[in-house]
Amino acid sequence: MLVSEIDMITPSSLSECLMLLSKKGRIHRVIAGGTDATVRMKEGKWRPEVWINIKNLNELRYIEESDDCIHIGPLTTHTDIIHSPILQRKADVLVDAAREVGATQMQNMGTIGGNIGTASPAGDTLPALYVLGARLELTSMSNKRTLPIEEFIFGPGRTVLKENEMITKIIIKPQSPNEIGIFQKLGPRKAQSISIVNVAISLTMEQDLKCREGKIAFGSVAPTIIRARKCESMLPLGQLNDELIRNIAKIAWKEVMPITDGRATATYRRDMASALLERGLYRLMRRWNNQ
């Protein structure tokens, strides 16, 4: 398929979009911000017969709070997330992660739905969505279903999304006032880089610098994002101090199964899982202390 032969259709409503998705016969693909799709088109990997361009479906671009949940439309851009007062207050770890996506231009164009749909093991918003217990609403012409993000992604670039479905909502649990989160990323440089390792942490704190519970999710160290359950179970064991942090961090490398690629070796990635967890927990401890 030549690029010049590919058609593009721009639906003007969600229902029109779902109808287009349900049509059989022509191979289609949805394009939103295009920060991944155009690259893959250029590389010759994604050459559908039709692009379904949803970039301007504004009905899918929102951040709302209701029924003890935060609802995020999939066409919400990373920049929208960074500037959202609701998310800044109640999902700091997601805001933190959105800030680390590519560079400003990518943040302006790229959408959260796209980051989820691409399902890259290095996707920066994914670990944050994991620790925020994100659930995804998938909609087709005839059906609507909701499932946790863990069940949505099952491999690099592979999801349970059917051809006639699209992500129509991301639902997260807002953080309580004693919950704090952080996203840590190690890339080959500070801006415009793909993660070598990243980690999202969200802690529920109580008196005396003790952590009641916490969630930790690593990116770029396994085929999908993974939760560090052993580390999480150690968090409530004592006061969050230098020693506990170091002990928890040491365990991190046992929770990950990275590979060697052009950006880093597996050994380094394993070490960095510990390093980033240590750095992140230390920064959270300091922030909580200063509050």
Binding site: P188, R189, K190, A191, S193, G262
Partner: peptide
């Protein structure tokens, strides 16, 4: 600190600016 074009057995492993890391304003 950052830059290298990696070649293995005559083939380029570094293909474009995704892998070839140059400093940005933040560096």
């Amino acid at each position: 600190l950052y830059e290298d074009i990696l070649i293995e057995n005559g083939y380029h492993k570094t293909r474009n600016f995704t892998d070839y890391i140059i400093p940005t304003i933040r560096e």
